[in-house]
Amino acid sequence: MQQLLAAAAEVIAEVGVDNATTNAVAARANTSVGVLYKFFPNKQALVEALAERYVGSIDEVLLRQEQEGISSWPLPEAIDWVVRAIVLIHEQNPAFQHVYRAVRGSSQGGSVALLDQPKRVIDRLLAQRTPTAPAHLRELHATTAVEAAHALVVCAVSLPARERARLTEQTVLLLTRYLEPEYAPVSPTST
């Protein structure tokens, strides 16, 4: 199964999801399409399995950083670290941007939940930063931040290096300004 996913990632990175075929994936994996169908009933299932793998990588990175205390960092530094980590995962997995777009644009029920786990982690981090923030607002902020970050990162990784860096910086700025009013510590005023 891992060999099939690796082959699917290679094929999708080269030709995109729409042009990838199960026959091309099976050929890249040096197996038959019949073997592929034993693990994945169709191309959509293969794409969703890749999406779960990629989002799982993001979850691992966020959870590890949560344990390292990222919620206590200055907000701009924490956001910068998270955005750059997501960019790096996308750069290391060239098929990710194609898979993300395909799954997010799918009418399949599970595709809407693609980013639920990262949203839960971000929601938890926001709660650690500002325990008094109402849960319903925190959930909305986490959803908005994660969806915006992923959409902008997907766009950024398709750009040449210089433009990618600029869009990454702008993504950090956007998210910082969005989250600062609620989640940046208030400086004590001098008397």
Rank of each mutant, 00 (worst) to 15 (best):
E147D: 10
S158E: 08
V154I: 05
T130N: 11
D123Q: 12
E139C: 03
L125V: 06
P131L: 00
G105I: 03
A127W: 04
Y100T: 00
F96K: 05
L137M: 14
V87Y: 04
R101F: 06
V146H: 05
Q97V: 10
I89M: 03
A145Q: 09
E139L: 03
A156L: 01
A85H: 15
S111C: 08
R124T: 15
L88R: 14
L125A: 13
A95V: 02
A156D: 07
S106M: 01
V103E: 09
T143K: 09
K119W: 03
A151T: 11
E91W: 06
T144C: 07
G109K: 03
L115A: 02
S158N: 10
N93T: 02
P134D: 05
V112S: 14
A149C: 07
I122D: 03
A148V: 09
T130M: 13
A148Y: 12
A102S: 13
A133P: 13
V154E: 11
H90P: 12
A151W: 08
R124N: 10
H150P: 04
A145E: 07
T143V: 09
T144Y: 11
S158T: 14
A102V: 13
N93H: 10
A135R: 12
H141M: 13
E147K: 06
L88E: 14
G110C: 05
